[in-house]
């Protein structure tokens, strides 16, 4: 464990050094991402401006959802970018090279990329705006809960990125489907999931538990009422991460024993 962390830090530091060499690029990229995200947020506003709020849901609470999901995804992307662009790694044959290094490949793929700050930044803006507009009261308990929820959300997306990468062992071109799940999921997550039909609610609660780390915690913040599912939310995110890691491990084994 300590060895793995050391190795992770080693790779990250090296990557950081090259990224810092072009710090202006990193800032530009972050700004570009921020711009795109804020525009998406603006369409959400436009929708509410047109229709007014729906029972139990308005622009403020939707902004919280929009922000929360992007903070979580931004963190997952920042660390798990290697998994997200794994199809490139496979296609260029770089995966074999990774296998030749005496460090688990998952560590090598988790090298941090800091240009994702744009997404996290946009998420924070939207989330904080939502909280203040909805008059969310923060105290020690809710802040601690929020931190746990964000970590759980990042873990969930990280698990998803690992599953997406595993898919690349079989079909590099199925990647856009996985992308649709990841990005479509974010779009879906920014609107109230209790308005969905039962089967869909089931999917987003139990199959791909996006609602659990997004909608349910947001509701807790809005109402101040905890329930068992809400408390378990961060844990469920981490369980999903565990599942992703397991799938990944099996994928690597299958690749090396049946692969190319």
């Amino acid at each position: 464990m300590k060895f793995n962390f050391q190795m992770w830090w080693l790779f990250t530091r090296a990557a950081l050094r090259t990224q810092m060499a072009d710090a202006s690029n990193a800032v530009l990229w972050a700004a570009a991402t921020l711009l795109g995200m804020l525009l998406e947020w603006a369409t959400l506003w436009a929708l509410f401006a047109r229709f007014g709020s729906i029972p139990g849901w308005d622009f403020a609470s939707s902004s919280m959802l929009f922000g929360l999901v992007r903070i979580a995804f931004g963190i997952a992307e920042m660390i798990g970018r290697g998994f997200d662009r794994f199809h490139h790694v496979i296609r260029k044959g770089d995966f074999d090279r990774m296998l030749l290094r005496p460090v688990p490949v998952a560590i090598q793929l988790s090298v941090a990329e800091f240009s994702r700050f744009g997404m996290i930044g946009a998420g924070m803006v939207a989330f904080l705006y939502g909280c203040s507009a909805a008059h969310v009261v923060f105290n020690f308990g809710t802040i601690a809960y929020l931190v746990a929820v964000i970590s759980g959300g990042a873990a969930l997306f990280y698990g998803l990125l690992m599953m997406q990468a595993t898919l690349c062992f079989w079909t590099v071109d199925g990647i856009e489907v996985a992308n649709a799940v990841v990005y479509g999921g974010q779009t879906a997550a920014q609107l109230p999931l209790d308005k969905l039909s039962r089967p869909l609610t089931f999917v987003f609660t139990y199959v791909f538990p996006l609602a659990i780390i997004n909608w349910i915690p947001a509701k807790v913040l809005l109402t101040g009422e905890f329930n068992l599912l809400a408390l378990a939310a961060p844990l469920i995110g981490w369980l999903f991460f565990g599942l992703g890691a397991l799938v990944w491990k099996m994928g690597v084994r299958a690749y090396t024993s049946t692969g190319s």
């Binding site: 090296a14 050094r17 060499a21 005496p102 090396t256 024993s257």
Partner: peptide, 29 residues
């Protein structure tokens, strides 16, 4: 295969067509 991580610690590999060096870093790094 079964001891890959231990094994690769003791081998060196050079692919003429591909680099195992870090593209953006100085050689000494």
């Amino acid at each position: 295969f079964s001891q890959r991580q231990e094994h690769v610690r003791h081998i060196g590999v050079v692919f003429g067509q591909r680099t195992q060096l870090w593209w953006d870093l100085p050689v000494s790094d």
